Amino acid sequence: MRNAPLFENTPVIILTSRDNVIDRSRAKLVGASDFLTKPPKPQETLELVRKYLSRSSRVLT
């Protein structure tokens, strides 16, 4: 996805049941913006969505 110009600035959040240093590092290496573990906590999920929505609105203005 990151190689396509249309998606180069699109936030990608990995959702996985695996939560260790290797998996987090792998997610960053493949271009993930952030990382959530299952089951996702509603508050944490909202915070990430808000974080990336606020960044995208700054890019658009």
Rank of each mutant, 00 (worst) to 15 (best):
A4H: 15
T45S: 14
S54Y: 07
E44V: 14
P42V: 08
P5E: 12
S56I: 01
A32G: 11
R2W: 02
N3F: 08
S54I: 09
E8V: 06
I14V: 15
L15P: 02
R26P: 00
G31F: 01
R55W: 10
G31D: 03
V21Q: 15
R55E: 13
P11F: 00
V59Y: 02
F7M: 08
K51C: 04
N3I: 10
R18K: 15
R26E: 01
S17Q: 12
K38H: 12
S17C: 08
I13P: 00
T10E: 05
R24Y: 04
V30A: 06
E44K: 08
A32P: 07
I14A: 09
F35C: 05
R58Y: 09
P39H: 10
S54C: 06
D23K: 02
D23M: 00
T45N: 06
N20K: 05
R2P: 05
R2T: 10
V30H: 04
I14W: 02
D34I: 09
D19A: 12
V59Q: 13
R18A: 13
E47S: 12
V59F: 03
P42Q: 12
F35E: 04
S57D: 10
S17H: 11
K28F: 10
N3Q: 13
R55G: 12
R26I: 01
I22Y: 05
P40W: 11
L46S: 14
R2Y: 00
D34E: 13
K41D: 14
K41Y: 08
V59E: 06
N9G: 02
K28H: 12
L53F: 09
G31C: 03
S33I: 03
T45P: 05
Y52W: 15
T37M: 07
R24T: 08
E8M: 14
P40E: 10
N3D: 05
V12E: 01
R50D: 11
L46K: 15
V21H: 13
P42T: 10
V21A: 13
A32S: 15
N20E: 15
K28N: 10
I13N: 06
V12S: 01
L15S: 13
S25H: 08
E44A: 10
V12N: 02
L6N: 06
V21W: 11
Q43R: 06
D19C: 07
R2H: 10
